[in-house]
Design a binder for these strands. Structure first.
Lengths: 232, 232
DNA sequence: ACCTGAACACCGTTCAAGT
DNA sequence: ACCTGAACACCGTTCAAGT
């Protein structure tokens, strides 16, 4: 018995285009060529369709970008963040590292992320979970909310500054290569004008490392812990 | 005696175009219509010249954008930052507020700032001066450098998140209006799914205020002060 | 050195038309 | 509902030419 030709089940004659397929193609272009490569016409070409066909699925290019960002945020590993058996610092550090790992794998998405409001379901879920960790840390609801925003701000700000140095069209570099490039650039700055900067060149070259990222986060968490009694 | 017609002094027959004039026109477009309004052709039209004439002054559009950002950073008031008679926290808070004030006056420039490497003369000078404040605060050179980057990261991250919510083409809103808009948006999120977020809606609506900004900065400075003996 | 006209290879989006 | 062809009003940049 052949099944009835419902719109759901048919393999379809020409193409079974879908939102997911479009977003996957968009992410591919973003990863290869950066934000400049993410064009409506480019995505259409990638999925083998005429440019205006995409308007059936997304009303504008920026709606497509928002959906892409939301999809990426959904891939952040939040298992440790919500694990109440872990110490609160561990949970926050794990979340911060998970966001960073994901976004450094998709640096082209960072400008998109910073250009869209932080209000999708995945953003809201992360926020809610951060409020829980900070309540578990002993903060009042008011301080927990302020602290959650401070943490989000630090995470996204750090990643944005890091990504801003890459050529979006070039192949992504690993951490030692990026530090080496920064070190090389620092040798060109005049020590006479910027003596302290020159003297700390090694640390500054490593601004974009995981070490600096977690150092800053821990100082920040220290500041939050100081505003409460318990720091378990 | 008429002066010799040196290239320097002449009022010129058609137009005395200059880098400064081009940058001023670019900033005007940016302020009125956001980053999308900053086009080579638009700037050329604004200064009354054909599009390709700009290539005499800037090799590419992104070079123009970098020069624009560098010019804006030069307008940040750093007088308190370098005033060694002031307590170190005061100096840093004053700098952070000065950067924020300037960039909220030119929100369209923020995506440009986050898209260019932080390596111009004004960026380097701020960095050098931050290292001095933090040394005055008693940090080791190594900790001072890490701390400087933490502070820069916080400043730019906060401002970026704030600006991301505005319509770049719309007229800029003042702080109470922006908070009211956030409060209105928050009433649409389901309290069942995000109970803590819903319970803290008032604080969250105020995420983009000066109060939240300085609260976060002070927690961060608390964290830095904890890593040293003296906190004068 | 500084500017123009014309062109190239792109954009996002809309509209009328087809199935 | 979903797709196409054609068009509109834009882009950044280059090239040859003028002064």
């Amino acid at each position: 018995m052949t099944p009835p030709s419902s719109a759901r089940a048919r393999p379809g004659p020409p193409r079974a285009l879908s939102e997911a397929e479009i977003l996957a193609a968009a992410l591919r272009l973003l990863d290869q060529g950066g934000p400049a490569a993410l064009s409506v016409r480019g995505v259409a070409n990638e999925v083998g369709v005429s440019p205006n066909a995409l308007y059936t699925y997304f009303p504008t290019k920026s709606a497509l970008a928002r959906a892409l960002v939301e999809g990426l945020l959904g891939q952040v590993d939040r298992r440790t963040l919500v694990d109440r058996s872990q110490p609160w610092r561990t949970r926050i550090v794990a979340f911060a590292l998970a966001v960073r790992t994901l976004l450094l794998d998709h640096p082209g998405a960072v400008p998109l992320l910073l250009g869209s409001p932080y209000d999708g379901p995945n953003a809201l879920a992360s926020h809610e979970e951060l409020l829980e960790v900070l309540a578990d840390a002993g903060l009042t609801p008011e301080d927990a909310a302020r602290a959650a925003y401070l943490i989000i701000t630090y995470i996204l700000g750090s990643i944005a500054l890091d990504v801003a140095e890459h050529d979006p069209a070039a192949a992504p570099l690993d951490e030692p290569a990026r530090t080496a490039a920064r070190r090389a650039a620092l040798t060109h700055i005049p020590p006479g004008s910027y003596p302290r900067t020159a003297a700390s060149a090694e640390v500054i070259a490593a601004y974009n490392t995981t070490t600096q990222y977690t150092w800053g986060l821990r100082r920040l968490l220290d500041g939050l812990a100081g505003s409460t009694a318990t720091t378990r």
